[in-house]
Amino acid sequence: MKYVVMFTSRPDLDQNVEPEHAKAVYGRIYQWFQDNGEHIADSGAELHPVTTATTVKYGESGPVVVDGPFNEAKEIIGGFSVLEAADLDGAIAIAKTWPALELPGVALEIRPMVEDYSQFE
């Protein structure tokens, strides 16, 4: 099965992390992608900070453009990847090794990807 893993963090807590520590974790993230190569169906994307977000939504007279993310949550999505695993436990086992999990406020959300469209026919 394919699972989308969303890497989330809390920007308000990021500031507490020592730059040295962040750098070390970043190095291990590169290694993580190498180590899990056979389970990564799509390495996905890393996103620029949430301060760069622009939201388009429906307003009274058509689409309107606003500054900022789509919701006011403290947690923001910093990127995503697509994993290939036999079952949810397989995906969880990989997610548990994500190097940035040791940083405060970091969490991974795992969601199965729709692969079989016949259920919508």
Binding site: M1, Y3, A85, A86, D87, L88, D89, A91, A93, I110, R111, P112
Partner: peptide, 13 residues
Amino acid sequence: SVGISLAVPEPDQ
């Protein structure tokens, strides 16, 4: 839908 296995977990889990 999320693929929870109906098998006994692997020894390490």
